[in-house]
Amino acid sequence: MNGILSRETLVKWAPLMVLLILVLFFTVLEPRFLSVRNLARISVSAAPALMVALGVTFIIIMGSIDLSMEGTVSVSAVIFAFAFLYLGGTLFGLAWLALPLAVLVGAVIGLINGIVHVKLRIPSFMASLAMGFVGTGLALLLTGGDRIRVEDEAFRGLLTERWLGFPIMVYVAIAFVLVGWFIQSRTTLGRNFYAVGGGEELAHASGLNVSKVRILGFMLAGMFYAVGALLAVARIGIAETATGNNFMFMSITSVVVGGTALWGGIGGVWNTLVGVLIVNVIGNGMVVIGLPGYVQDAVLGLLVIVAVVLSTDRKSISFVK
């Protein structure tokens, strides 16, 4: 089958088709779905998740997995909030320094995550899951279970200021998609992710320092999680241990549904953008047409299974763990 309907073409465009069909479906059932107001609502809830999903995209392209996002997001959010308030609590003062600090925190956690995975030779899903638990624990230790309010108007402007009907944080998110796209397609590191994912032994044999690429990948992912944390705090105005809740399930689902294969080597940031939109359109659309919110986790669970099954070439693998 080499025609337009070959398996590869289908797999490549299926996520976008699914997104369009979903949008059409919800619009037919409830025309208000397509109003600027509702689209803005979808993009605001998608923005933090998109940042986290972009980070884990690079890891999944390498054929690894990162489950540490909940902990990393919580720690970055909490440290950001503490630093922000300590430095005066307004973006127009020194407190803007808390923004790069949060990203630095994300990078450090990602770095430790990568080192634990690569140097101790622990499979990434378990190393990162454990690091995620440590992160959530650290956030709990730092806050003692309290919520920290960030009420600075300039910072919350990410949510409250609108251009063309959409809050600024949506444009920030789009800018970071472009950054991710640049890293993926125009940098050596980005290309190396694909090399590792396409075949680790071959990449190693051609002289690539696979360990270094992996560690840098986890560090980069940590930085994107921190950006996600900043947007999440801007969205609700609160930093707490629970800030990171649900990001793991959401982001992994989004990446996989977008068409980035768990086996690595295929997909990228555009797939993730489509995947995050699919997940959020489903979440929003179900509420708009009047379905209860609690169905969402089940639907996402089934969706991720279908996506993995469709993206798997079953002739090439003998078993999975």
Binding site: I65, F249, Y294, D297, V304, I305, V309, T312, V320
Partner: peptide
């Protein structure tokens, strides 16, 4: 799902966990 559909167990169990969570929310009325 893990053995027949070749979905790694950490994904299949995470997904079924989502299903169980939804069921719990439905049954309990949240």
């Amino acid at each position: 799902i893990t053995t027949k559909l070749f979905v790694p167990s950490f994904v299949s169990t995470l997904a079924m966990g989502g299903v169980a969570y939804s069921a719990a929310q439905y049954l309990s009325g949240e």
